[in-house]
């Protein structure tokens, strides 16, 4: 039984990958999901990844402006979380204008309370803010990225 010493923050430095190198979106998603697993945010990586892939099939989450926001609600998710990657080379998430350089992998519990889901909604909302995105993209320190994100969506 894992100790439940989970932070309330939706992300922490160990869930941030600066300079991600990935072959494709499945690889990128897996690398990020491993961070969620390592941080105790998900219990079963395969179950979670299947849910993400299934949602991704509905329509891809790459968005014009170099963003991707793969996400899923799953029983494998312990607490609402987001793993973040910046990638100079970029990963193809199906955006119309090319690869995504800023990737947010969102994990929502299957039966999350609305206040938790609202935090994730706020994150999705903030991602549309270009200045916010640039602030994250230009930052090299995972701890600062995690702190910036948490500050903006949980205040």
């Amino acid at each position: 039984m894992k100790k439940k010493l989970l932070s309330n923050a939706i992300t922490t430095a160990d869930m941030v990958i600066v300079g991600l190198e990935a072959n494709d979106k499945a690889d990128a998603t897996r690398q990020l999901a491993e961070r969620l697993l390592g941080a105790g945010r998900i219990t079963d990586i395969e179950t979670y990844l299947v849910a993400v892939a299934k949602r991704e099939e509905h329509f891809p989450t790459g968005i014009e402006g170099g963003i991707a926001i793969p996400h899923a609600q799953s029983e494998a998710v312990v607490t609402p979380s987001v793993a973040v990657a910046t990638s100079t080379s970029g990963v193809d998430f199906g955006a119309e204008d090319g690869k995504s350089n800023l990737i947010f992998l969102i994990a929502a519990p299957a039966n999350g309370g609305s206040e938790h889901l609202e935090i994730l909604g706020t994150l999705a909302y903030k991602v549309m803010d270009e200045d916010f995105r640039n602030e994250l993209l230009n930052e090299k320190d995972p701890a600062v990225i995690a702190a910036t994100l948490t500050r903006e969506v949980q205040k």
């Binding site: 996400h71 929502a108 909604g121 994150l123 999705a124 991602v127």
Partner: peptide, 29 residues
């Protein structure tokens, strides 16, 4: 469909569009 991300991204996109065009926009998510 999942009600987690795109709902709120679209809210932001519509608010931004209205602001850019000089109109008012209120979104119900």
């Amino acid at each position: 469909i999942t009600g987690i991300a795109h709902t709120y991204m679209a809210q932001a996109a519509l608010e931004q569009a209205a602001k850019k065009l000089g109109h008012e926009m209120v979104v119900e998510t």
